[in-house]
């Protein structure tokens, strides 16, 4: 039963990654990034690694996305109108 959840989460991870790469707008890609980190945290928890899960929860789901959003706000992206 845990195998079904594990493979379903891997399928969801692949869908999220392909949507992040192939979308047109940059904001949609940034919005999907913390979901990628969240699925990664759940996979680490299922694989019995709480330390790596703590580090991934802080870095991938938290700080990286915040830095990307602030960097996009500093540039001239989307200000042409």
């Amino acid at each position: 039963m845990i195998d079904i959840i594990f493979h379903l989460l891997f399928l969801f991870l692949i869908i999220t990654a392909f949507f992040m790469v192939f979308t047109k707008d940059l904001s949609n890609s940034v919005i999907t990034l913390p979901l990628f980190g969240a699925i990664l945290v759940i996979i680490f928890v299922i694989l019995q690694a709480p330390g790596v899960a703590l580090a991934a929860a802080i870095m991938t789901a938290g700080l990286t996305t915040a830095f990307f959003v602030i960097t996009i706000n500093k540039t001239e992206y989307g200000r042409n109108e």
Partner: peptide
């Protein structure tokens, strides 16, 4: 892990709603 993830995700949503605007 759940507690740290909750705090981090809330800060994430707030920063997105603050800075990701036209």
């Amino acid at each position: 892990v759940a507690l740290v993830y909750g705090v981090s995700f809330f800060i994430n949503v707030l920063i997105m709603a603050k800075y990701l605007k036209k």
